[in-house]
Design a protein around this nucleic acid. Sequence first.
DNA 1: ATGAAAGCGCTAACAA
DNA 2: TTGTTAGCGCTTTCAT
Lengths: 343, 343
Amino acid sequence: MSNQITISTIATELNITPATVSRALRDHPKISAKTKKSVLRVADRLNYKRNKIASSLRSGKTHTIGVIIPSAEINFFGSVVHGIESLANAHGYNVLIYQSNETHQQEVKGMETLIAARVDGILVSIAKDTTDNSHFVEAKEKNIPLVFFDRANDDIGIPSVVIDDYRGAFLATDHLIKQGYKRIAHVAGPQNIKVFRDRLEGYSNALQANNMQKNTRYIYQGNISIESGRKAASYFLSQKIKPDAVFAAEDFTALGVIKEIKNNKIKIPGEFGVFGFANELFGEHISPTLSTIDQQTVLMGKEAFKLLLQFIEEKEVSVITQKKIVLEPLLIFRESSSRKKIK
Amino acid sequence: MSNQITISTIATELNITPATVSRALRDHPKISAKTKKSVLRVADRLNYKRNKIASSLRSGKTHTIGVIIPSAEINFFGSVVHGIESLANAHGYNVLIYQSNETHQQEVKGMETLIAARVDGILVSIAKDTTDNSHFVEAKEKNIPLVFFDRANDDIGIPSVVIDDYRGAFLATDHLIKQGYKRIAHVAGPQNIKVFRDRLEGYSNALQANNMQKNTRYIYQGNISIESGRKAASYFLSQKIKPDAVFAAEDFTALGVIKEIKNNKIKIPGEFGVFGFANELFGEHISPTLSTIDQQTVLMGKEAFKLLLQFIEEKEVSVITQKKIVLEPLLIFRESSSRKKIK
DNA sequence: ATGAAAGCGCTAACAA
DNA sequence: TTGTTAGCGCTTTCAT
């Protein structure tokens, strides 16, 4: 820790000034090739490493971005972070992670912490609990580059990268209908999160587009868990006219549905169809394999970073402020949604 | 970004010096309660936030730790990061993530980047490809607090938090034997990673402890994938005297084994037993449900951070340098390893 | 209990 | 093309 090599060390050794060393090190155009070479040589020999803290203090740029996710334990976010990180590192940026644990309070704290750390920009996937958006609005007013991914809010002029949840839901529902299922039910996710509202809407409109009646008793309000999938299935089966298929807002819910339906000795697929959403890993390993929708997580992370980088590099943040990147949902057709039982 | 509130702003307003403000803000004992109160009040009113960059530059502490993981996309690491982060934030530390993508080269780059970012300490889970440890040794020599988790190296005097892979493997194998399986095979993981060597050893010793003969034809060198599990199973089934159970070094491998064995119309459990390792999410949702070993990921993350924090706070890094925390593997008995077929 | 002054290491305007 | 000088905002001796 002692005896740090600084630009002064190099300057002294070469009988030039620290400023020249600094310029040479950053390949400043007005420094002679000769000086650059000798500086680089000495720097290399002494194994000099620029002190980024000092550099940040002076330049005001930390080359660090912050990422706020609900939880690193959720596969989806780990995967998006993977995408963010890979591109960020390639561009010389570090990534600070902060978990909101789905609470508004920790999300606010995360914003404060990251801003206090003087990150150059922040990527956020909004917590389930968040209804008050003032912490985002404030950041925006402070001109801190901010981009949402997946869980976005379109109402406060902050750009985002999302997938087309509406379209994914529409296509999944439509697929079930085309397979010949007649009474499609839906297990919805928390409606304060936009992605789940969109999925519900996609489901509804697909019914409508196929001249099928929307039945409120075929919509169950779930909460992203195996258990709520089970409950939804029980509820559906308790009705006089039972649904014969379910589009679940999310894979774990779909899994719960499958378990409960199988418990009742109803055959999936054939007698009953199921479609999920998220392409969780387990989907292709359960029986029946789960039809679902891939959200292009790694790509989403990369696009989010790219968009943020534009904001960081633009002087006028406001210019591209309404930008929104919508990725295609990729439908994955497996056994659970087909009409014929695949053995 | 302009017009930042600094300690000078507060100082001017109160007609005191920045030094006093700085002290008051950090609750320095020799500052009068009255001064503290007024400083705090003004700071609050102006919404002052300490500039951590400047603070770091001056004090030499960034209150940031770095974490190097093979990939954020792997569930296990996401979960450990979750543990690290939760405790780090509670202690006022930020967490910088770096992914090695299992390559030695990126791991070295990660160390350099994090050191350049002046993190206060680094947590590492070693990349699959890494055989040369000089980048760790150098960090140690520079007195940079360093702690390994899960993928550790015991030979270079760096503390670590791991689970007892040997014991987990021993108990899993022993369990299969106690269930009545007679010819237990093993699908090993990459032997340059210590955890997999330990698991192989635990397997071997469990056989020995039960007076069962070790048979090299019952050991298949896999590489942590479904595919290698399938290949291992085919290989085992091709033998004259076939194994009747498999302890797989990892869950995905176990899944591949199960798929292949089922393909051959052999009943699991009953005719064939399978035990995995890692407690991946899918294990409880496949059929048969997978017996496996939980690695206490979140706890591991927390313990790793705690240990690192000790190092950061100790002046003499060398004192506790040989510390090693070994967590208990938690065996999870499900259907795949029982002797009677559970319907 | 507070002030004065120096400086962490780097960058950037201005000069030369 | 290079040097001079002045900080970025904070912390920390050393005085008082």
